[in-house]
Amino acid sequence: MTATIERGTATAPVPSTTAAPPAPKPRKRPSGFLGSSTGKKVVMAVTGAIMVGFLVLHMLGNLKIFFGKDSFNEYAHALRTLAEPLLPYRTVLTVLEVILVASVVLHMWAAVSLARRARRARPVKYVAKKSQAGGYVAHIMRWGGVTIALFVVWHLLDLTFGVVNPKGYDSAPADRMIAGFQPGRWWVTLFYLVAVVMVGLHLRHGVWSALQTLGWARGGRRRMLQVLAGALAAVLVLGFLAPPLAITMGFKG
């Protein structure tokens, strides 16, 4: 004898699911590794690492100004004549510049692509939203990136191409640097300061975040990597701020 159990309305399944399991909506499928969110994060991590390497060398180069104009100019010249007898003038530097520009473009592509994906993932915003994680720097990465990108444009026009520099293009690098940060141009130094602090905050989160993306930040290592990221960011900020502040405040010139 078979008993038929009538299911009460409280436990009855919702009508739409009784007919057939709802077919998942056709969604635009990501294509391949670089189309995946994790793949884009890896692009961001690797290009970020290249840029951090550049920043460390750039900072060390800047500090040469404290050893005198000649030391700084010689360093700038040496960069252009790297591996000179073997390779033509400016070969190594040009290759490095191409890698750097490619890194910047790919880093921005990944950032924009992930930001758009994030916006699509939350079409309706919260009325009230309260952050529970302490690290506010993680929430200003995108604004920091935009600020840094704008600064880099100004920075190249100022000290590389000399367009907005009092000394112009046909001058020694050290002269452009010292003229660029004279006390009368304090607003340039201020902009520089804001941008460098932004770079520091960007790296405070970015460095350990990149290692997390690559799967290396585990267990006790995370804490250590976060401290190292903070230390690296602090060293870079101080190293980059020392020359312009010294020039603007008149210790150098």
Partner: peptide, 14 residues
Amino acid sequence: MDAEGFGGCTNTGE
């Protein structure tokens, strides 16, 4: 996870 339309992780820790 990607196909469902979730966003990417930025390690905010939220």
